[in-house]
């Protein structure tokens, strides 16, 4: 097993864990930048495919990192990437929860959240944009993206059936 690759996975996802304000979807642009553009661990098509799979599969969509880790270094890579992604942030939540009495009177956390929210929203748009332009090579792709965004904004229904329909449309249009 190549320990160099494992330690690179751990340092990248471990650092990302503490930068992932706004949750898993907010770090999609940085994962794509590092994994596809900088390290060439995955091709554009592979990145998009794993993104689609992890967004539809049960459980947290951030398990995307397990799939990336597996591709790069097999099961050890999957385990290393997953532990690195979740451990630092989980320790932080645990410490804050333990000391919540002290935090109760302070509103700096709420202040921080208010300031970070617009950044998070911009990051989520960036993640959607990066994937959309990758698959939006013709109007079919853009129409699927726009239609789904409209559906999510206007209804509260589970979007998964529509994601599967989009898969069939993609197969018919591009297959």
């Amino acid at each position: 097993m190549n320990m160099g690759v494992l330690s690179e996975l751990i340092s990248f996802f471990g650092g990302l864990s503490l930068l992932s304000f706004g949750g898993g979807n907010a770090v999609i642009p940085e994962i794509q930048r590092h994994v596809v553009l900088v390290m060439n661990w995955l091709s554009d098509a592979e990145f998009v495919a794993l993104y689609a799979i992890s967004q539809s599969a049960p459980g947290p969509s951030s398990l995307f990192v397990a799939q990336i880790g597996w591709r790069i270094a097999g099961w050890p890579g999957a385990i290393a990437a997953t532990l690195a992604m979740y451990t630092p942030s989980s320790i932080l939540v645990y410490l804050v929860e333990r000391s919540r009495q002290r935090f109760r009177e302070q509103n700096w956390l709420a202040r921080l959240e208010k300031s970070l929210a617009p950044i998070t929203i911009g990051l989520i748009f960036a993640g959607g944009w990066i994937v959309a332009q990758e698959v939006g090579k013709d109007w079919t792709g853009w129409l699927l993206t726009a239609g789904m965004a409209f559906f999510v904004v206007t209804t509260k229904l589970n979007p998964l059936p529509l994601v599967l329909v989009a898969g069939i449309i993609g197969m018919l249009a591009w297959g």
Partner: peptide, 20 residues
């Protein structure tokens, strides 16, 4: 690949809709 690209286009829309 085309099927997953279609799903990714929709999932990207899901994420953008969440942001909106």
């Amino acid at each position: 690949q085309p099927a997953l690209a279609g799903m990714a286009a929709a999932a990207a829309g899901m994420s953008i809709g969440m942001g909106v």
